[in-house]
């Protein structure tokens, strides 16, 4: 690999390290520092070491001033993770066939498909979520349609529940799953699948034994792009879920808004970061072990 030998990895990584080092890692230090400070009276922080923010996540003072264990924030965290997981799964189920279809189009049509998949996202997310409200509400298109044809007698409750939130999340993140899968499938050596088919493996067998394993890098990349942002999302739960159940995104937003408790907001993000990073590293190690066995 002459090209890479001449320009060692660190040189290639230089622009990334410069930009991230200055404009991301430095602010990140600020966040970590905030999480160990005390909340300022008018928002912001006062420069004074404090662990209150971390204690607050698991323990709370009740109104009479007694400290006790409180699982409320833990619940919020678990709910967000669960919802993000469901969303990721749905995205894979809908995204993989779409990406497969795109990758098997004639080459000149493939970029067109990429554009087709992303163009709806030129419209603001808030506006698109609104449009879903128009579709799903009691007097919305779906219910009116079903009522008109007498399929149902009463409007179906499609809005302000878990179904609507799931639908909204799937809608917000689908392209972030489709495109990574597509880019790993696009170059697939279709002769492999043909060879498999020639060996009288069924289409489905070929899919599960050959295609999906080859598309794995794309599925993993897409899952990361969907799962992680979905944990912190709040628009879908606010607008389509009726704001009745808080997500991690809402909780953190609240600390930088009404609560004016920056250290708590920062601490919650630091913990979120730590947990997800740990999860990712464990998964990477596990993947390596599996690879090592094969």
């Amino acid at each position: 690999m002459r090209f890479l030998k001449l320009s060692p990895a660190y040189l290639l990584l230089l622009p990334f390290f410069i930009i991230m080092g200055v404009f991301f890692v430095m602010p990140l230090f600020l966040i970590v520092a905030y999480s160990f400070m005390a909340a300022g009276p008018y928002g912001g922080v006062v420069h004074q070491f404090s662990l209150d923010a971390y204690l607050q996540i698991l323990f709370e003072k009740d109104f009479d001033g007694n400290l006790h264990f409180s699982p409320a924030y833990l619940e919020v965290f678990l709910r967000s993770v669960k919802l993000a997981g469901v969303c990721t799964l749905l995205c894979v189920l809908a995204g993989f066939p779409t990406a497969y279809h795109m990758a098997t189009r004639p080459p000149e049509k493939r970029n067109l498909w990429i554009m087709l998949v992303t163009i709806p996202f030129w419209t603001n997310l808030l506006i698109r979520t609104y449009a879903w409200m128009l579709v799903l509400r009691n007097e919305g298109l779906v219910n009116n349609f079903l009522l008109y044809f007498g399929i149902i007698k009463e409007p179906l409750p499609l809005l302000y529940n878990g179904f609507a939130v799931g639908l909204g999340l799937l809608y917000s993140y689908l392209p972030f799953m489709i495109l990574p899968i597509y880019s790993s499938l696009e170059r697939m050596d279709w002769r492999l699948t043909e060879a498999a088919a020639d060996l009288y493996a069924g289409r489905w067998q070929t899919l599960f034994r050959v295609t999906i394993p080859l598309a794995m890098p794309g599925i993993i990349a897409g899952s990361v792009l969907v799962f992680i942002p979905a944990i912190g999302s709040f628009l879908a739960s606010d607008l389509l879920g009726g704001g009745k159940q808080m997500m991690l995104g809402n909780l953190i937003q609240l600390q930088f808004g009404f609560s004016r408790n920056w250290p708590f907001g920062a601490a919650a993000s630091v913990i979120l970061m730590a947990i997800v990073m740990l999860g990712m590293m464990l998964m990477a190690r596990k993947a390596k072990d599996v690879k090592g066995l094969v």
């Binding site: 709370e60 109104f63 409320a72 924030y73 619940e75 919020v76 704001g243 009745k244 159940q245 808080m246 809402n250 909780l251 609240l254 600390q255 009404f258 609560s259 004016r260 408790n261």
Partner: peptide, 14 residues
């Protein structure tokens, strides 16, 4: 009071 209100709201929408 802001603290207490935040707690009430978090509990309400937990």
């Amino acid at each position: 009071v802001v603290d207490a209100y935040s707690k009430i709201w978090s509990e309400l929408t937990r």
